[in-house]
Nucleic acid binder design. Structure first.
Lengths: 226, 226
DNA sequence: TCAAAAGTGTTCATGATACACCCATGT
DNA sequence: ACATGGGTGTATCATGAACACTTTTGA
């Protein structure tokens, strides 16, 4: 029985946190993964994570992981779910409090390929083999992200400060995985007062320039959007 | 600094679970609480809870608590949130995975007053002093319950097998804390096929008898009700 | 006969959906 | 000149909200 081997190793339960980090890149929803080295998982990837410290709140641990692994702070971070199956980690009894984070596409870190050789973005529809129960974590995070997008304004956390209406619509379409009607979508954005125009335009494309907008409020707020 | 005293006591983090147990009783939403005895909390009440065992999934621990403290099984039980502040428990570093449970009004346990002298139901608007961060837990659980009631069918877990339409409406009104329109509410129930009539009536009241209904499906399901 | 809750439809307002053409730019 | 995405309004449909009277029983 597995329990005994666990007892031999730790004889108590430890608390970890794992962070599902999303961004929009190359017109796809992507997740940041780290390649593992330890034994049963040599060919697997995993979400960034780690044990929480004794004098550290669980939320703070998630923030720390985010900063350590991705070098980024002050992004949208929300507790997702706590995974507590006995056998979820072959190294011992580990209860993991999972979080999900949203990184704006303009804050994408070069570091990911320089500083770490084995850290990389993966489109959610082309994930490699994942360690532990991390496949379930990603699934769960995607579900949460999709529904949250529909009843809140958190899309702001995936976009740069200035953006075009097509960019915000594209973000919705990518995450929800269906097309939206341009006119109806814009009507909704305006009627909810989510965005305001800057009076400037985004030029340099091989087409008509698009007006630039900003969010009227960059704080989480519940509104029915889609 | 508090951390040191914690280190002296445990020198590691432990995982607990607390269960916010709801029922409808006396036309009020009520929570089951246990009176504490330990030092800083002699005059406080708390949610039933306990440490998780090494060979026990966190979900199973919550089920066990529910069975031990309330003697009830197979009720609606859902993970709520994990509370992980460093100082939340003066006895040591305890991370608590909170759950909430819904008990049907006909399964109310007599035991609560017999077997335990210091366990009792409290209306959520008249809570006594609560230990730890349990006030926050209850608030959080009520919020979850209210929104979940609106977009799912979990109300079935608060009602007996057979019920009248007024009873189900009353349940909504109590939890959401506002009145609903009888005709519109019934239209919604029927159009969603949530309930079906038994052809029998509930008699014995000092008024016109009400038709009895059952749920067509007693499994959690997402539907827009309110 | 009275009190108390059960039962039952229609109208109106609002929001969601469907839909197509011209415009401004870079190449 | 052409390809590319930007920008704009209306008509229809479906859903939600408001609303009042009659019925049946036990006391």
């Amino acid at each position: 029985m597995k329990i005994k081997s666990i007892k031999n190793k730790y004889k108590f339960t430890v608390v970890a946190t794992d962070v599902v980090i999303f961004t929009i890149k190359d017109e796809k929803l992507q997740v940041l993964l780290i390649k593992m080295k330890k034994k049963p998982y040599e060919e697997h990837w995993a979400m960034p994570g780690g044990l929480i410290k004794l004098d550290e709140a669980v939320d703070s641990a998630a923030e720390r992981i985010l900063k350590e692994k991705v070098g980024i702070e002050n992004v949208y971070l929300e507790q997702l779910y706590t995974f507590g199956e006995v056998d979820r980690d072959p190294f011992g009894r580990v209860v993991s409090v999972a979080y999900f984070a949203l990184i704006p596409s303009d804050k994408l870190i070069l570091k990911t390929t320089k500083e770490y050789g084995d850290i990389s973005w993966f489109p959610v529809d082309k994930l490699p083999k994942l360690a532990y129960d991390h496949k379930e974590m990603v699934r769960s995070a995607i579900n949460r992200l999709q529904s949250k997008l529909s009843y809140s304004n958190i899309v702001y956390s995936l976009l740069p400060k200035e953006f075009t209406l097509s960019e915000i619509q594209k973000t919705y379409e990518i995450i929800l995985d269906n097309k939206l009607d341009k006119r109806n979508f814009r009507k909704k954005l305006f009627s909810l007062n989510l965005v305001k125009t800057l009076g400037r335009e985004k030029r340099g494309m091989a087409n008509r320039p698009a007006s630039l907008y900003v969010f009227t409020d960059r704080r989480p707020k519940n509104v029915e959007i889609v």
